[in-house]
Simulated assay, not measured.
Amino acid sequence: MIMADYRLYLVTEGYDYDEQTFFSIIEEACRAGVTLVQLREKKRTTQAVYERAKKLKVLTDRYQIPLIIDDRVDICLAVDAAGVHIGDDELPVSVVRKLVGSDKLVGVSAKTVARALEAERAGADYLGTGAIFPTQTKQTPVTPVATLQAIVESVAIPVVAIGGIKEDNLDTFKGSHIAGVAVVSEIMKAENVSLKVQALRQKLANVLEGEQ
């Protein structure tokens, strides 16, 4: 089983960047201290996602950071990524676990305690809960912090908060005992990626202090 550090989990978004810019942002983030990277591609063809995932795997391996593939079990297996993250409308968690085996990470989106418990029983390694704050990246209802807290208290596996998370709202998670936060635009659209990642890491060290 891969031992993952969930503290600062980068979820990618293309934002119409050219290929060089897209990869340079991710590499800068890896160099600066993100602890996990998820490739999320909703609109590209299977071939295009595969090619991008293959290239990204080389990059994340260079920095010894696990690569997670959003939704696509086939792409995860094809590029030998560290794991896959699935939502509510994907394959059942138990089926995904059988397909990827015991050595890969399986992350599951969970907006309710019932879904969280179900996912944990079916073999999930960690949960992603949100959107905690409004976000333009993905149209989804906001999940109350109280629900996030209830999920954390209900399961034994790590819980990562996601959705609209920025440096200036991290204090929301003090005392929550989450394993980390997943960030999209705050890093992918940062004017200075390295400084932003360093600032997030510094703030998270305080927010998550004593909770790992």
Rank of each mutant, 00 (worst) to 15 (best):
G14T: 01
G87F: 05
L117N: 10
R44T: 11
E191N: 06
A53I: 01
L195V: 00
E120D: 07
I86P: 12
Q20N: 12
V184G: 06
E27A: 09
L56G: 07
C30S: 10
F22T: 02
E191F: 05
R62A: 14
L208T: 02
A156S: 14
P144G: 06
V183P: 12
K98G: 14
R7C: 11
L67H: 13
L10K: 00
L127M: 04
K138N: 00
S176Q: 10
A81E: 10
V113H: 04
E209M: 10
T12L: 03
L67A: 05
L208Y: 07
T172N: 00
Q136V: 08
Y17S: 13
A156Q: 07
L127P: 12
T112P: 12
T60G: 12
I25A: 01
F173V: 01
E153A: 15
L148A: 11
D5L: 00
Y17A: 07
Y6I: 08
V84H: 11
L200Y: 07
L10A: 11
I165R: 02
G107W: 02
I157N: 04
L105H: 03
A146D: 15
G163K: 02
M3T: 14
I178M: 03
A182E: 08
R72T: 04
F22C: 12
L170V: 03
T46G: 14
Y15K: 11
N192Y: 06
L208W: 01
L56H: 01
F23V: 00
L91Q: 12
Y9L: 06
L36R: 02
E211Q: 09
V184Y: 02
V152A: 01
A110W: 03
V58Q: 14
I65T: 02
Q202Y: 06
L10Q: 02
Q202H: 12
T137V: 08
V181R: 00
S185R: 10
V73W: 04
T147R: 00
Q149M: 13
A29L: 04
T143I: 09
M3Y: 00
K42D: 09
G83M: 01
T112R: 03
I165C: 10
K138C: 01
K43Q: 11
V181G: 12
P158Y: 06
G33D: 04
K98L: 08
A116W: 00
I68N: 02
V181D: 10
V11M: 06
E167M: 02
A48D: 15
A53L: 08
S24N: 08
D71C: 07
A182I: 04
E19F: 07
L127E: 11
P141A: 08
A114Q: 14
T147D: 15
I165V: 12
K42R: 13
D71R: 09
K54T: 01
D89R: 08
K98P: 13
I68K: 00
V108S: 07
